[in-house]
Amino acid sequence: MSKPRWWAELSLIAVVYAAYSGGRLLVRGDEASAVAHGLGILRVERALGIDAESPLNRLFTDVPALGVPADFAYASLHYLVTPALLIWLFRRRPAEYRAARTWLTVSTLLGLVGFTLLPTCPPRLLDPAYGFTDTMAHFSAYGWWGGEASAPRGLGGMTNQYAAMPSLHVGWALWCGVMLWRYGRTPAAKALGVAYPLLTTVVVMGTANHYLLDAVAGAAVMGAGLLLTPHALRFVGRLRGRAEAPPVVSGGCETSTGERIPGQRSVTTSADDTSTWGLPCPSGAEDSGKAR
Rank of each mutant, 00 (worst) to 15 (best):
K290E: 02
G157W: 08
G49P: 10
V27N: 10
P152S: 08
R93K: 12
A32S: 12
G146T: 02
F60I: 10
E96Q: 15
A149T: 07
S140I: 05
A47C: 04
I87W: 12
A65D: 11
Y183F: 15
R153M: 09
G143T: 04
N160V: 00
G177M: 06
V204T: 05
Y211F: 15
T159I: 13
L117F: 11
L168I: 06
L89Y: 07
N57C: 12
L117K: 07
E254F: 10
P55T: 06
S266G: 07
T257E: 08
L66G: 05
L168H: 09
V170T: 11
A164N: 13
L239E: 13
D127K: 04
T61R: 14
V63E: 03
T274F: 03
W172S: 13
G146L: 06
V178M: 01
P280A: 00
L10Y: 10
R292A: 03
R234S: 14
N160I: 01
F72V: 05
S256Y: 02
S54L: 15
V267E: 00
W144E: 03
A173K: 09
P83E: 10
L168P: 02
V113R: 05
L213H: 10
T102Y: 08
P197E: 01
P69E: 09
L126H: 06
A151H: 08
D287L: 08
A215P: 13
G23E: 08
R260S: 02
T229F: 06
L80F: 05
S33M: 13
A151C: 05
E259N: 05
L25C: 06
G184Q: 02
A32R: 11
L117N: 08
V267S: 00
E45P: 01
T135L: 03
T201S: 09
A65G: 09
T116Y: 07
T201H: 12
K190E: 09
A149S: 11
L85V: 15
S2L: 10
V81N: 10
A18V: 09
